[in-house]
Design a protein around this nucleic acid. Structure first.
Lengths: 256, 256
DNA sequence: CGTCGTATTGAGCGGTCTCAAAAAGAGTGG
DNA sequence: CCACTCTTTTTGAGACCGCTCAATACGACG
C-alpha cells in the first residue's frame, strides 16, 4: 500500500501477497468480522492478478465466474445506455469486492474497468459462495454487505435526482475521501484522486466540460485543491455544507 | 391493531386473508420458490393491517422492527434531502416486501408511504429473519432478492444520470406496466396508474410541471392515454423505443 | 520536440425549472 | 343535484443550469 506504482507496468514487482497478512482483509466479506479463516481462503484463492489501467475485465451481459477483490488500485463499475452514454455505478477501492453478483449468476449486468493499474485477488465464484455459506456468520455478513450496497445506491439516486451539479461533485469528493480514510489509505485532508473529469462526469450525470467549470470554481473559492492527482480539501466546512450531508448518511457511513 | 381504521369507502371490507390461499405468495421472499411453508408463516404473522392512502408508516431514521409485505394497494419508499427535496426510491406493488432492511437493523434509511389505500401483512422482523435463515433455500432466495434490488437501483441510476425527461417517464411507465403484468394485476395494455404527476416527478428527478408537459406530449402523439387513473399504452412500439430498453434489462427483468 | 490525453475557456442553445394563474376534477355536505 | 373546497393538472412567460461544439492550452511521456 505504501509503495508507489503509478505508471510503469514494469514496476509493480511485488510478490504475490498472502491473505494472512493482508492489510485490507478486515474489509472483505469473507475475512471481515469473526467468521473468516485466512488460511482456508488462501487455499482456494485462484490467482493474484495484475490489470493495467484502462483495462476492462468484466463485461456487461457476459459470463463471469470469478469473484474479485481489489487488492491495490482503483476500478469502477459502469453500465452503458443503448445510445452509448455511460453511467458509473460505483468506484472500487482496495478491499472492495468487485461483484457480489457473481456469487449468484454468472451473467453480469455491468462492466468493470481499471482506473489505475490494479491488482486483484481472484477466486472461483462458486468456491467463494460455498465458503461463505458454509460459515453462518459470513453469510450474515454478506447480507449486510447487500444492505449497504443498496443504501449506497440509494444515496447516489438522491444525488442524481435531487441535487445540483456542484452538490454532486462535492458529495463525490467527500464520499471518496471518507472511504479512503476508512481504509487508512488517506490520512489527512490530502488524498490520491486518480479520476479524470470524464469519470466524475460519468458518475454524477454531468458533462466533463461542466465538471471542469465546477471544479475550477471550487478551486477558485479555495474549497479544494487538485494537483497531480492529489486532492486536498482546503475548506472542509464549505465542502460538506455544499454537499448537504444528512444525519442519515453520517450514521450509515460509519458502517465501513 | 388488525381492525380497520380507514374512513372506509365501504369497499375493502375483506376478511383477514390467509397466507395459504394468497394469490401473491409466490412473489414473496418467504413463500416463493420451494422452501416456504405457508402454514408455518401464517402462525407467526403478527397482523394484517390496513393503512389509508397518504399515510407514512415507516420513517427514515427511526426504529422499525416490523417486516411488511404489501398485500393490496400501492406504496413507495422515499428519502428526503436536507433541504427538503424528496426522491422516491422505489414503488411497491402487491407482493413486494416493504423492507428487507428491517431484517438486519431496525433503524431505517427511508420512509414508506401509502400511495393508495393499502393492506399489509405484518411480521416481527426478527421472527421473519429467523424463519428465513432456518431454511437454506429461503436464505438463498433472500440473497437473490438483494441482487435484484441492486440491479433495479442501478437501472434507476442510469435513468437519472443519463436519460432525458421523456425517456425517464417512458421507462417508468413501462416498468410499472411490466411489474403489474408480472403479478397478473394488469392484463392487457391498460392498467391502474394511481400516481400523481408529483410522484412521477419525485421518482424521476423532474418537476411536476415538466412531467405534465411530457405526458401531455405523449398523449398528443397517441403514445399513451391516461383517464381516471387508468393508463393505456396505445403505441407500445413508440414507447419502448423512446425508453430505449436494452437487452440487459430485458434479460434481468424476467427475474420477476 | 511531437504526440496524445486531458483541461480550460468561450459562445450559443435548449431542456428543465420557477413562479403564477387558470382550469379541471374529485370529494363533501347541503 | 348543486355549491363549495381541495387537490391536481394545464398553460404561459421568463430565467437558469448544464449541454454542445470548437478552439486553445496544458502536461506527461516517448
Amino acid at each position: 500500500m505504501g509503495v508507489a506504482f503509478m505508471k510503469s507496468r514494469g514496476t509493480h514487482s511485488r510478490q504475490e501477497p498472502s491473505c494472512l497478512s493482508c492489510p485490507i482483509r478486515a474489509l472483505t466479506v469473507y475475512l471481515g468480522g469473526i467468521g473468516g479463516n485466512a488460511g482456508e481462503v488462501l487455499k482456494f484463492r485462484k490467482a493474484w492478478r495484475r490489470v493495467p489501467r484502462k483495462t476492462v475485465f468484466v463485461w456487461e451481459n457476459e459470463i463471469c465466474d470469478e469473484f474479485f477483490t481489489v487488492h491495490r488500485g482503483w476500478a469502477y463499475c459502469y453500465r452503458v445506455t443503448r445510445d452509448g452514454a455511460r453511467q458509473i455505478v460505483q468506484f472500487l477501492l482496495p478491499g472492495d469486492c468487485v461483484s457480489l453478483t457473481a456469487l449468484y449468476r454468472n451473467r453480469m449486468y455491468f462492466s468493470v474497468r481499471a482506473l489505475t493499474d490494479l491488482s486483484l485477488c481472484v477466486f472461483d465464484s462458486v468456491a467463494m459462495s460455498d465458503y461463505i455459506h458454509a460459515h453462518a456468520s459470513l453469510g450474515q455478513r454478506l447480507e449486510e454487505f447487500w444492505l449497504r450496497e443498496s443504501f449506497l445506491l440509494s444515496n447516489r439516486l438522491m444525488d442524481l435526482g435531487q441535487r445540483s451539479g456542484p452538490q454532486r461533485v462535492a458529495r463525490l469528493v467527500l464520499d471518496l475521501h471518507h472511504r479512503m480514510t476508512a481504509r487508512g489509505i488517506a490520512k489527512g485532508r490530502t488524498f490520491e484522486f486518480p479520476l479524470r473529469h470524464q469519470h466524475v462526469a460519468e458518475a454524477s450525470g454531468l458533462t466533463a466540460v461542466h465538471v471542469s467549470r465546477i471544479m475550477s470554481a471550487l478551486r477558485d473559492r479555495g474549497v479544494i485543491d487538485l494537483d497531480r492527482n492529489m486532492l486536498t480539501i482546503r475548506d472542509s466546512e464549505a465542502l460538506s455544507d455544499l454537499a448537504g450531508i444528512s444525519s442519515t448518511e453520517a450514521t450509515y457511513q460509519t458502517v465501513a
